[in-house]
């Protein structure tokens, strides 16, 4: 007699826990033949609101952890992902990727984590400077995380794209709330399981699944979100994000690119996108 397989329940990832949507709603993800792959939580704006509170609370201690520590945690995520790569490949295939593409994407995603892990204790040296002011002051400028970042992850390359956008944000000390690919959300929630077993403090990465049309405006208008990153090319949506972002002078970043596999997706300038420059002055006379 064949054994009945245990199906996985995909939930949200907020504050290091896996809650269902407070709304109780869900949406179905089907394969190309119309068979159900999974029921995903349809996150509500209240779920998002809760996630922002949690991300805010987690931000300063995450930012204050040492650069070395953040690097090791990112590397640890890569290690855990490497160990479960077959699962991720299978999930991508289930969501319609070819076997070859799925494998390439997962391997690249792991390498990208390692890439940004390596930047953790270096980007500051790259972007900071001492400013030779004319007066008797020691004056320097360093980067600081912008704070809480809301991310609308790429629709395609649902694992690699997601990782490529959040890795530079968190390695720079931000906490993020991500809206996963709407059509391919499985990898994001499985990735949450990886995060949860990788020493990433709860609340640093929060992952929601749901509908862009419901949530993007909430992401853009929330007054306690400092920056929003939108991956995609929907012009009306970008207009709406930009307009709503002005409510609290939110920093907006739009990644219109389709291909997150290229080498151009690896540079410290991605980290810089969610950083602020802070300049400090102190007298030098005694």
């Amino acid at each position: 007699m064949s054994r009945l397989a245990i199906q996985k329940t995909y939930k949200l990832y907020i504050g290091g826990k896996f809650p269902r949507s407070e709304s109780g709603r869900f949406y179905a993800i089907n394969d190309s033949k119309g068979n159900l792959i999974a029921n995903m939580c349809l996150a509500s704006r209240k779920d998002f609101r809760n996630a922002v509170v949690i991300a805010r609370n987690a931000q300063s201690s995450w930012a204050n952890s040492s650069a070395l520590n953040k690097g090791q945690i990112l590397y640890r995520i890569a290690e855990m992902l490497e160990g479960r790569k077959e699962q991720f490949i299978a999930e991508l295939i289930a969501q319609g990727e070819t076997a070859e593409n799925a494998k390439t994407e997962v391997l690249l995603a792991i390498d990208r984590l390692v890439y940004f892990a390596g930047w953790s204790d270096k980007y500051q040296q790259f972007f900071s400077c001492i400013n030779p002011v004319s007066s008797a002051h020691f004056n320097f400028s360093v980067l600081e995380p912008v704070g809480v970042v809301a991310v609308i992850a790429p629709e395609k390359q649902s694992l690699l794209g997601l990782i490529s956008v959040i890795a530079p944000a968190i390695v720079g000390g931000n906490t993020v709330i991500v809206l996963a690919s709407e059509s391919k959300p499985l990898s994001a929630i499985s990735f949450a399981e990886v995060l949860n077993s990788s020493d990433v403090p709860g609340g640093v990465v929060n992952i929601l699944t749901g509908k862009k049309e419901e949530l993007v405006n909430q992401f853009a208008s929330h007054m306690d979100v400092n920056s929003i990153i939108y991956c995609g090319a929907d012009e009306p949506l970008m207009l709406s994000i930009s307009e709503l972002a002005s409510n609290n002078v939110k920093r907006t970043t739009f990644y219109k690119k389709n291909d997150w596999a290229s080498d151009s997706c690896e540079s410290p300038y991605f980290i810089e996108k969610t950083q602020e420059v802070k300049t400090t002055w102190h007298p030098t006379e005694i």
Binding site: P132, N139, V146, E276, V277, T279, W281, P283
Partner: peptide, 20 residues
């Protein structure tokens, strides 16, 4: 964006200025 320690309202062409 700018923090002055034991001084205040200092500006210089070489010193980045701006807000968060």
């Amino acid at each position: 964006g700018v923090v002055w320690a034991n001084t205040f309202n200092k500006f210089d062409a070489t010193s980045p200025f701006g807000g968060t």
